[in-house]
Every structure is written in C-alpha cells, then in structure tokens.
Nucleic acid binder design. Sequence first.
DNA 1: CTTTTAATTGTCAATATGACAATATATGGA
DNA 2: TCCATATATTGTCATATTGACAATTAAAAG
Lengths: 258, 258
Amino acid sequence: MVGEVPYPYDPGAFPPFAVTADVALFTIGNNALQALLIERGREPFLGARALPGGFVREDEDLRDAAARELAEETGLHAGPWYLEQLAAYGSPDRDPRMRVVTVAFWAVCASLPASPRGGGDAAAANLLPVEDIERGAVRLAFDHARIVADAVERIRSSMEHTALAAGFCPPEFTIRQLREVYETVWGVSLDPGNFQRYVRESGVFEPSLALSAPGRDDTRSEPGRPASLWTARRTESGRPAKAVRRLARPGGKQARNR
Amino acid sequence: MVGEVPYPYDPGAFPPFAVTADVALFTIGNNALQALLIERGREPFLGARALPGGFVREDEDLRDAAARELAEETGLHAGPWYLEQLAAYGSPDRDPRMRVVTVAFWAVCASLPASPRGGGDAAAANLLPVEDIERGAVRLAFDHARIVADAVERIRSSMEHTALAAGFCPPEFTIRQLREVYETVWGVSLDPGNFQRYVRESGVFEPSLALSAPGRDDTRSEPGRPASLWTARRTESGRPAKAVRRLARPGGKQARNR
DNA sequence: CTTTTAATTGTCAATATGACAATATATGGA
DNA sequence: TCCATATATTGTCATATTGACAATTAAAAG
C-alpha cells in the first residue's frame, strides 16, 4: 500500500463542487404545519426565505452537517428532533454563484423555543405556515420551494405507515394529540373513535406503562375522562403495520388533493 | 446586477468535493432480480464489483449524469429504463482517495443485451443476482452494498402502490408477466386469481386497447387461453390507488422478512 | 372431438373500514 | 351529594376489501 493518500486522483480530473446540507424542519404550531426558515441577509435572494443550511465541512458526515446547521439555527443542541435525508439537489444553475450540490434533509420536532432566533448565524429564523409556502405566498431562495414541497410530501406519506406523527408530539402523548397531528398535517378530519382503534391495534404505537395515564391526576383541571398516554413503539421491522388510511369523518375539513 | 458571476464566493470559503453519480440498475433475468455491476480494473477495490457511475460534469444535471453513465455502461442510449434518485451518500471515508459525495440513482428496465459489455469504459459490466449480493456473496466496492440494499428496499416498497413493476416488463405485458415480476422481486408467490382482480380493479394498470389481446394470434403456439395485454396507466395522481398487499397464496415461496 | 393447459371470472368466509351509538370518568356548580 | 358537561374509550353494525379456492373460458395437441 502507499502512504497518506493511497490512490490519489489526478487533481484536474474532476470538477470541484461545493456541497451543502439544508434542512427543512417542521413542527406544529398555531394549529398548522410550520417550517423553519431564515431570512437571507445578502445577495442573492436578499430578503427571501431560505432553509437553514451551509457547507459540509472537510471531514464531516452529511447527516452531521445537517444536524449542526439545525442546532446552530435553533439554538437547540442534542436535537430533540427526528432527522432523515430527503435527496440531493444539484441543478447546474440552482445557485448563480457557482456549482453547488445540496443534500436536503427533513426533520420534525415537537416544539421549538417561542422565538428560535439564530444562535449566532446571520439572520433570524422563524416558523412559517406550510400552507402559505404551498400557496406561493412566501418568496423562497434557490430551489428551496421545491425542497420544502418534496419534504412535506415525504412526511405526509411516511405518516401513513410509521410512527412519524409521534415526532411532532412530546415523548408521551395522548391519542387526541396524535390525532390532531394527523389532522393538521394531512388537512383532514378524522373520526375519534376509529382513530382510537387504529392507535390501539395498528402495532405502531404502544401504551406508556410507567406513570401511565388514568391515575396521574396531579394538577389537571380539564373536564372529561382523562386520556391515557402513548408512545411510538420501538421500530421492530418485519411487522405488517396497519395504515391509517381513510378514517376521515363525513363532515370534516376538505381533504387536500391526495 | 453584476456580470458573469454576480456574487462570487470566496474561493477558500468552502472545501471542494468531488461529486459522482452512481446508478443501481435492476432487471429480471433467469427468474431472479439482477443488478448491473462492473468489475473494477484498478485500485482501490481492484477486482471488486461496483455500480456504474462517475464524476458529474461541470454543467451537467445530476440526473443527466446518471443517465449518461448508464448509457455508457450498457451501450443502450435513449435508455428504455425508469430512473429515479435514491439519495446522496457522503461519508467522509467512503473513498480512501479523497472526499467524494455520490448521488445514487436506481433504475429498472425490461431487459438488457445478453452481454451488456462496457461500451468503451474500463471494465466489463454484467448482471448479478441481488440475492447473492444480499447474502454478502459479492464483494462490492465503497459503500455500494448499502446503496444496492437501499435501492432494492425502495423498489420493493414502491411496487406496492405504483405501476413500477411494469418497468420490468415490455411496454405491453400479460398479467402473468406482471405477476412474475412481483413474485420475483418480493420473493413470494401470489394467487393468480386474486392478482388478476388486483390488476383489473386497482386503477394502476389498464388494458392495452389497440392490437389488444384475444385475437392477435399470429405465431403463438402455447396452449391455454391467450392472455390479454396491459400497460401501466398514465400517472394520474390524486387517485386512491389500491395496494397489492397480501395476495399471497398458501403454499407459496417463503416471504422475505418484510 | 377429447385432453391438456393457462387465463379469467365467480363464490364465500374472514377481516378491515366508516359511521355512529353507548359507556366511562373526569370537572364544576347546584 | 348529585347533576350537567366534557372528553376519552369502547361497542355495534353495515359495507368494502382480502384470502382461499372453485368454475368457466379459450386456446393447442393429439
């Protein structure tokens, strides 16, 4: 074998690219699906919104870069989020300055500090309703509108067969909280009774034993029977895993064109 | 605005990466799912198998680069394949020579020239059974074993709700051909009667009108009622689209651990 | 014309889903 | 304490879908 660099490439044999990692972080706030965006403080796209992101470092894994950018932008470290890669976007003209390939990630989390101000990065970060973005009411930089659209589609689809919806909730949650996540992200209204059955029998979630539900009456003051708490079941693949499908209720919100 | 390069980056502000496009092409041959691989002719991983791929050119779109590499490797141009991006792979140590981020694609096609020899590229390309790869019986270069595994999983999953299986068939195909694709890729045995019903009622496929089936007896010589021909239905999203799910038949092949 | 082979359709029980009623368990006030 | 109110949770039942498998159709071969 050779030394430091066993089989060096001819330095001129390949075109150099810049590689960035961008993250579309979603959360639910104000009864709507929200995306974390920053306001660009310089050209190009000065004043437009953009996804948190930046150059991948020399010896940094793509995923680590995405997590780092997210942490820098939200101020939250040891992120309480669920992060997954979406795809690479590398159209030759996506950045007017030079050839940049970005690896996009999507993430979901339960909540965010009221004002997730940039923890040192240039501009301020804030949450904007996905509905506004889908309507084209938000000016997004580069191809970030497409990235957000693709991420939302992936999330909506993934929620049908996995416990992803739990990523929008605290570690333990009530069935109602979970149902409201589905209703908000999918833009539909679900039947509470049938949804209860789904959560109970799908194998995707499981009741939170420990300081479970009925009996933990500490300082609650809402009327009605207290709800039990649930968690996402540890991912044991190799299971059927039922889907949520059409639990919609008759007079509910108008479903999007899925 | 400025001229050629409106907002130039500081050349030293970002680490240069090499970006490549790799393609995992699958087809069905010999009653098994097969992947197109080349044999590496140089270090590192001399002698190991690798996915067709190479550097993305200066002004080339990622997808175009993938299609180009595929065409160069198979000798087929104007590819009769279905090509879609899988994900980016960019672990800092995935290539011992330098920092390379690869954008992986997966593709499926109906058939390939008997011996898809490299159309000019270094090594010979040939098809290897995915089963062997999954079993670890094939030495793959870099992280290509993971890429193949991810691609196979994506394909198996996608086939459940889309017409992707038709990508393994000629433009027009019989229901039996289509069923054999599912059986081969999923490693299960499906009930012919129930599968017929699925094809007929799922909305994913549609009967090939034109020179349809019963009546096109030109030079056939197989016994039995002649099969009608079908095609993938033009993608009209916004439809329910039934899933293939468990049409398995009792004594069929052992299903993989899905 | 009969046998053989494969495609296609039909039947029926077991499940799953959608709609909605009934019951359980809290809070708050009379 | 008892009742009205508000949720959570469980049941019921008609309908739709799925799995298993029988029956029918349409060709080739002898």
